[in-house]
């Protein structure tokens, strides 16, 4: 039972990280109609900057703040220099150009920090465990990720549903031509939304640093999972991104933890040994295929 709760928490933790990535990406998809493969690169930039600034300043909080600002700057710069010209192009051009950007970002990072994974430390006050229930001790830092993630989700909900900026974002996701026709500076809105998404991706990377490997290419591993999240949730929908992220996070984590023992009860242990890990790593893609077959627009399609 304790193991199950622990794995559910792990799933939640993965889920909120995926959500931070997916929120920005789904808005960029929904509003600018841009397939941005380089979103994962911003996650990587966030992780590297946080590690670097924490070492340089000695303060974790300051390191996080500087890394967040740095990722925001890199994101806005990328939008202004390269991505801006891609909004009017077709998806094929966008995929290829942002694929090129991935190569550029990964190699730049490798030039600066090398190809090997770098060690990203935690301050002492975040290293302990917290006893949530009798016999259940859970790492404090992972709990913090869950809390931060859920807080960001709540703040995002407030911004998107209750503010003027959010109204513009929602309007842009459902009909951007109309928003431009109503006299809104759509270029500026694009840059703001992109910067917003970049900062969120950076935040995910910053928090990922101490628990996953910080190395060039780390963004692409999570990026493809984020695509699954967005497609499951429905492109352009923040609500869908949250639901999709939690579903994907839980399915992936629980699948990896329990599929093998579960299979062992229905087949022979050796068959479960062989099939379990393979099936567990394929599970979220199967989920995506099923969702698309039943609801091609995702669970929470934003466009009617």
């Amino acid at each position: 039972m304790i193991l199950i709760i622990e794995q559910i928490l792990n799933g939640l933790q993965l889920g909120v990280m995926l959500f931070l990535m997916a929120a920005g990406l789904t808005l960029v998809f929904g509003i600018m109609n841009l397939v941005n493969l380089a979103h994962g690169a911003l996650y990587m930039v966030g992780a590297y900057l946080a590690t670097y600034f924490f070492q340089a300043t000695g303060s974790f909080v300051l390191g996080v703040a500087l890394a967040l600002a740095g990722t925001l700057a890199v994101g806005i710069l990328t939008e202004l220099v390269a991505l801006r010209t891609l909004y009017e192009r077709d998806h094929l051009d966008q995929v290829l150009a942002t694929f090129g950007l991935i190569l550029i970002f990964n190699e730049l990072i490798a030039m600066l920090w090398g190809r090997a994974a770098i060690y990203s430390a935690l301050p002492e006050y975040l290293q302990g465990h917290l006893e949530i229930a009798a016999g259940l001790r859970y790492p404090l830092y992972r709990l913090l990720i869950i809390v931060v993630g859920l807080a960001v989700a709540a703040a995002l909900w407030y911004v998107v549903v209750r503010t003027r900026l959010g109204m513009l974002i929602r309007a842009g996701a459902s009909n951007r031509t109309m928003v431009a026709a109503l006299g809104i500076n759509i270029r500026l809105l694009y840059t703001v939304v992109f910067g917003f998404g970049a900062a969120l991706a950076g935040l995910a990377g910053i928090m990922a640093g101490p628990i996953y490997a910080v190395q060039p290419g780390m963004g692409e591993l999570v990026l493809i999972q984020v695509f699954v999240v967005i497609v499951v949730g429905g492109i352009g929908s923040i609500r869908g991104a949250l639901a999709g992220a939690l579903i994907v996070g839980l399915v992936d984590t629980l699948g990896r933890a329990f599929l093998k023992p579960f299979l062992a009860t229905v087949t022979t242990p050796s068959a479960a040994d062989a099939a379990g890990p393979a099936l567990a790593s394929m599970l979220i893609y199967l989920l995506m295929a099923v969702v698309l077959a039943l609801r091609p627009e995702g669970l929470f399609a934003s466009r009617g």
Binding site: L96, A97, G100, L103, I104, E107, M111
Partner: peptide, 11 residues
Amino acid sequence: FWQFYLGIVLV
């Protein structure tokens, strides 16, 4: 860092 230059050509 050949992929860096490949990326630039691609873009």
